[in-house]
Design a binder for these strands. Sequence first.
RNA 1: UGGGGCGUAGCCAAGCGGUAAGGCAACGGGUUUUGAUCCCGUGAUUCGCAGGUUCGAAUCCUGCCGCCCCAGCCA
Length: 560
Amino acid sequence: MTDSAPRDFIRQIIHDDLESGKHAGIVTRFPPEPNGYLHIGHVMSICLNFGVADETGGRTYLRFDDTNPGREDEEYVRAIKDDVRWLGFDWADRLTHASDYFGRLYEAAETLIGLGLAYVDSLSADEIREFRGTLTEPGKDSPFRDRSVDENLALFRRMRAGEFGDGELVLRAKIDMASPNINLRDPALYRIRHVTHQTTGDAWCIYPMYDFAHTLSDAFEGITHSLCTLEFEDHRPLYNWFLDVLQPPHRPRQIEFSRLNLAYTITSKRKLNALVTEKIVSGWDDPRMPTIAGMRRRGYPPTALRDFVRRAGVTKKDKLIEMGMLENCVREALGDPAPRRMAVLRPLRVVLTNYPEGQVETVQAANHPNDPSMGMRDVPFSRELWIEQDDFMEDAPRKFFRLKPGGEVRLRAAYIIRCDEVVKDADGNVTELRCTYDADTRSGEGGSDRKVKGTIHWVSAAHAIDAEVRLYDRLFNVANPNTADDFHEALNPASLECVAAKLEPALADAEAGVAVQFERLGYFCPDSGDDAPGARVFNRIVTLRDSWAKLEKQELAGQG
RNA sequence: UGGGGCGUAGCCAAGCGGUAAGGCAACGGGUUUUGAUCCCGUGAUUCGCAGGUUCGAAUCCUGCCGCCCCAGCCA
């Protein structure tokens, strides 16, 4: 992170502000509303806000934007803290809430009234909407717009005292009902809400609106750069208006960047919530969810997510990033550290007819082909084995170099075998392969350098551990389900497949959250929620790149 | 339609008047007891389009086109 080369326009601005002496240090904030779990889009914001502060020796506040009691919840603040920490960021003692400032916000509102820049409106919500005008027509002044300062102050104090019901009165900024920017047409500042707040309890019955609370919270905390997404660009004039008229000691600058959208996922909290409440997924941390909690449970390393948003970049252009980009980051993060193991997802029995019944030998397999320091492990080998159903084909195309009738294949870290006989059930399904092994070809020994086209993985039947393995696919079938009329129609019905797999014994001590590579298949880890000693459950984090699958697909397309 | 923003390869993205970085994907080839990894190599005569300024334009000017956001007492 050399600051000599800012990576994006925001870091450029920050770099310039430091250079010019405008700021001695950088202060940012990540301000989630605790009404849902954090998702991949938030990862961008978290990495940006904490990232620029870390890079410049600055500070970042984790501030809960809890200005709307009733729809916010403590469960979410706990989850948000977990997620930010897991991503690798530290807010130290800078954990705040917008509600920490309710007293000062109230005073600021009275100041605005005193300045003649805010008034209490008696119009109903519907009337206010009618008076607001439209995109092309200016709005009309409220008949209550010219109440005296004293009357406004008295009314506002009575609002605060609880003398009015929800929606009866509202405090509005007095700006310009004819502004082409609708946000400036006398926006609401305070509304009445007789609801118990999750942290301030019943101390208040009036609550500040986002624009007012957010701007001043930034100012109170001495935020230098308030980084938010593009949809708030239209709010910047209002943000600056508050700063202009109230003149707080610190003047933060709001800068907007585009959201990060991931193809085949949704990042709308409302829709994510629907997936949970409608039980379409098992919860906010379902491994198919684009939530941080879901990705963590799935087994994505935090470094992969940080790498991903770094590669995506910070700009103002709408982006819809391919899933392959994220998957590449995950594979890259796991490739070196993940030890290799063997597991058979869809077992097909293989009997070695020339291997002595009852005999068991131990073969040594490398824990990592590119890193000898990770050592070797023992793998039991015997007469009956499981191999992958996909690794056998009765009528194989020439380019298929796995097992076929009469053909040979190498068993990873063990022997070369030949398929002599295919056993089928009454329906013609292949149920067993009867093979012979070449005793001279044990890996690492004399004849082991004999070449065959393919190498497949296997597990000794007598020693296999049974496990449920959960195979995940994209949750949606369309690239941008955010824009679908009804996201339910875009759901991928095959986003989860559970298989009864056979694992090599070394997998017995696999730990939750620690990724291993099942050779030739992908990266997996025990599920942090459902894995248990007697009933192992593994998640597939991501598949390996599969150029055979690609080839197959092309052939199919060629035939079609 | 008023206002705000954005258009550089399939997806991201550098570029800041001097002749189009990089990543992902794709496609060739090499190594390989994971069809993985790794290693080489291949893409824009052109930057939404059209004009203009300039010796020189993705960069400056004008016009047009396309896409996104805004009419919550949500954030």
